[in-house]
């Protein structure tokens, strides 16, 4: 694990931004999570500090008080050098059931034809790949997934839809993802995920964390409906598996 050159900048009086080189890379994301774990465990009071990792940055926020930027920057540099580089922080692998039925995958055929592949091939390529969660934002529980195969890159729709269903699985340029709630959106919709990505009634409302791995697997319409019912009565449980690369 190399030491990356970090850029540490102030972000108003309540936040500080730590930036890694401007690249989408697993090794960078891993170092961000390693450092953030070190900060949480050994350096900063987690009752007061919030940390937002995304792609090549880690933002630290202290809502109630102003930050002494110069002092904190020095301490962050020292803490970065002290982080444990021997092992990677724990991350999880989630298999998410997706129904690619044409009722949900409203753009499935159009996307396949534009990409010059069959619908079966599109589903296979989309579901055999393992994606990395590079960020969570935009909406509660919305994952920025990296690692989409080039063959599935397709521009977002020219006119966004006013309503995209909660759970809709979409494709747009280098990204794929799930709408965690009904929202306007311009992604090409190819299926529906039966698992809610954000549940405000749960103590842990969003099971996925930045750095985790996500893979979709195709399910039939009947299995999908069953999972939805199981989810509503609270008996559907996702398998939580540690990811060891």
């Amino acid at each position: 694990m190399p030491n990356f050159p970090l850029s540490i900048r102030s972000f108003g009086v309540h936040a500080i931004l730590i930036e890694w080189p401007n690249e989408v890379k697993e090794v960078i994301l891993e170092d961000i999570l390693r450092f953030s774990k070190h900060l949480k465990t050994n350096c900063l009071n987690v009752e007061k500090w919030e940390m937002v990792p995304a792609y090549n940055s880690l933002t630290l926020i202290l809502r109630e008080e102003p930050i002494d930027f110069v002092k904190l920057k020095q301490r962050l540099e020292k803490w970065y050098a002290e982080r444990d580089t021997s092992k990677a922080p724990t991350k999880y692998y989630w298999r998410l059931p997706v129904c690619y039925d044409s009722e949900f995958g409203i753009d499935l055929e159009e996307v396949a034809s534009k990409l010059g592949i069959t619908v079966e091939d599109l589903i296979k390529k989309h579901s055999e790949n393992v994606y990395t969660v590079f960020g969570i934002g935009f909406l509660p529980g919305f994952m920025y997934l990296g690692g989409l195969p080039e063959a599935l890159e397709i521009p977002r729709k020219k006119t966004p839809r006013l309503k995209v269903a909660k759970g809709a699985v979409g494709l747009a340029s280098k990204q794929t993802g799930i709408y965690p709630q009904e929202s306007p959106g311009g992604w090409n919709i190819i299926g529906h995920c039966a698992v809610p990505m954000f549940n405000p009634k749960s103590e842990n409302p969003c099971f996925v964390s930045v750095g985790d791995k996500v893979q979709f697997y195709p399910i039939s319409r009947a299995e999908h409906d069953l999972h939805i019912i199981e989810g509503e009565v609270g008996i559907y449980k996702l398998e939580k598996k540690e990811w060891n690369a």
């Binding site: 309540h14 936040a15 401007n22 995304a54 792609y55 933002t59 926020i61 960020g135 934002g137 920025y144």
Partner: peptide, 11 residues
């Protein structure tokens, strides 16, 4: 062009 990163109230 920048990579997606954190925003705050008041940004």
């Amino acid at each position: 062009n920048m990579l997606t990163s954190a925003t705050l109230p008041g940004t």
